[in-house]
Every structure is written in structure tokens, then in C-alpha cells.
Nucleic acid binder design. Structure first.
Lengths: 158, 158
DNA sequence: GAATCACTGATCATTTTGACTAACATGAAA
DNA sequence: TTTCATGTTAGTCAAAATGATCAGTGATTC
């Protein structure tokens, strides 16, 4: 089942919101909390897991907890013919947490972390040296204004 | 305990990586899998939870599963004196998933989702109308090259 | 009206949990 | 060196949750 082929309904969203607050809450408590039968919650959770509606969980670790207190956005220009090589190479850099390809003059937007500004320089150099990448521009993130969330969206839909 | 005051050690990272693959695995299986005593894993997980090393879990839901198949990066210029107002207002927009303040000429970088390009226009208008925001520039994300991960970082450190 | 579907509320044996032990190793301070 | 604190292991216990069932109920669809 592809993620798009299954749209979450209200019950799904309520389960996800509850799971959001406490990812490891026992199914039974969840059922009680939501006023559903345990079997229902169980079925829903299995479906959610297998439908691909959930991302991998890796986003849960704060980079600052592993000494990566410095965060940055790197925009990169790219020789389009080397896109796949660049992606390959970027994936190999552990400090690269995320990368998207937006429309417009920036070819890649990369989210990276480092231990300190010096280390950030090293990381941005590593990025710049990826095959196909012709130019980069690195901006340190001064403040995490809104940390990634989908809670607001889920709440909005209920 | 602040996030920074406690640095994860190798055991913590192994637990997190395992949890990453299966967030709801029973403590006992986790202990078996990692070759640790259950009590140890139990203690570690309690510490991880209370130390603030974990983010909220909300990042787990794919926006496409709730009909938000279109994703965008909005960069915004800002009248700095209205920063807090702008943050307030942005927080109220459910389609705004994330917002960071980078150094440099862009004041805010916003990650937003929408149902379709038309809806994206609406969302970017909402962003533009936030108090203090003077200019925005919206780029649709064509491809999620590397979805947010910390797995690589955790692996790198082990 | 029959069939399909999701939800309920119940059962069952098995597993996990939380909260305890006591024993052991390591490293630092006295 | 001895002592102390800390983190680990490995064990206990009753209580709770699990996965796998089941039949019954209400809605929706055909």
C-alpha cells in the first residue's frame, strides 16, 4: 500500500496524536484514553505501520545530545547531470540530516549539523566536494523557531 | 537535566538506533537484541526520556498521508522588531511544519505543506500576512532527496 | 434483504512490565 | 589500599499487556 493510497481518518489521527505524546504507551492504555476497543486500536496501528504513513523514527534524537550543537542550512548549486552522484555522496556524510530539491535557482537545500563553527566549515567543505556540486552557501541556524512538527496539522484536521 | 548536560554514550546510541527501527519494541526484546540486561535498558530509556535528549515524536507522520502532498520552502524577510509576533502567527498556521532563523539575508526559513499548488499559494499568502513579515519567496520542493534522519550520525559515532 | 465492513467486548495462554532484590565490576576519592 | 559511589547483571514477584482469537452489533453498499 502506498502512502497516498490510504488517507488517515479521524481515528487514525487521534491515535497518532496520542502516540505523539507518548510513543511507547501500551496499546491498552491508548484504547482507554481514546475510548476505543483495544482490538480497534491494534488493527489501526498495524495498518498505519504497514501503510507507510509513518516515517522512520530517527528524527527523535536531538543532535545536540551527541555533541552536534551547531546547525546549518547549506544551499548548493549542482551540475544536474551528476544529481544521483551528488545524492549518493551527500548520503554518506553523517552530518547531513536532510536534503531537499526545491524549484528555483538553488538546486539542493541541505540541513547539516556540526560540533562547532570550525567543524561546520569542515562539513560544508565536505558537501562542496561532492561530485556535481559547483557552489555552496552555508548559513548557520541561529534559532530553531518552530521545531519540526505535524501536531498542528493533525489537530487542524480533527 | 538540559539536553546538553548529558552526552549520549555508545549504549544510549545503540538503544536509540534499535528504537529507531522499531519505536514500540518491548524493553525486554530490546535488551535481548542488544545483549544487555533488561534493567539496564529500562534505566537508560528512563534517563533518555527525562534528559530531553529526545524530540517530540510528531515528525513521524507523513504529510502526504493527510492529503498534504505538496511541500515547499518559504524564505521570509522580517522586520526584526516584530520577530516574536511573527513566530506567534506562524505557529498558528498548521501547514507550517518547521521554521528556523538562519544567519544571513534570509530572516526565516519555513517548511510548509499544502494539498496542491493552489493551496500552496494560499498557505504562502497566510505566511506573507504574518505581522512583521515583509517579503516571502516560495519554492516548491520537487524531491525529498534525503528525508530527515539522524541514523547516519548515530551510526557514525558508534 | 444480503453482504461487507469496522467496531465492540469477551476469551485464552503467553509475554512484558515495574518494582524490587543481591551480586559484581569499575573508577575515583580518602 | 581501602572505601565509596555508580552502573551493570541477573534474579524474583504480582500485575498488566500482548497477540490471536471469537461472536455480536450497527452502517453502508449493492
Amino acid at each position: 500500500m502506498t502512502p497516498e493510497s490510504y488517507q488517515l481518518d479521524d481515528t487514525d489521527r487521534r491515535i497518532l496524536l496520542a502516540l505523539d505524546e507518548d510513543p511507547r504507551v501500551p496499546t491498552m492504555m491508548l484504547a482507554q484514553r481514546l475510548g476505543l476497543a483495544r482490538g480497534t486500536v491494534q488493527t489501526r496501528m498495524e495498518r498505519l505501520a504497514s501503510s507507510g504513513a509513518l516515517r522512520p523514527n530517527s528524527s527523535r534524537v536531538k543532535p545536540s545530545s551527541v555533541g552536534r550543537g551547531v546547525s546549518a542550512v547549506v544551499s548548493a548549486e549542482l551540475d544536474q547531470s551528476h544529481l544521483e552522484d551528488a545524492i549518493e555522496a551527500l548520503s554518506r556524510i553523517p552530518e547531513v540530516l536532510e536534503c531537499v530539491a526545491p524549484a528555483g535557482d538553488t538546486d539542493l537545500l541541505i540541513r547539516a549539523v556540526a560540533t562547532d563553527p570550525d567543524d561546520l566549515y569542515r562539513v560544508s567543505e565536505e558537501i562542496r566536494l561532492c561530485p556535481g556540486i559547483t557552489r555552496t552557501s552555508t548559513s548557520m541556524i541561529l534559532r530553531d523557531v518552530i521545531p519540526y512538527r505535524t501536531t498542528a496539522l493533525l489537530n487542524h484536521l480533527s
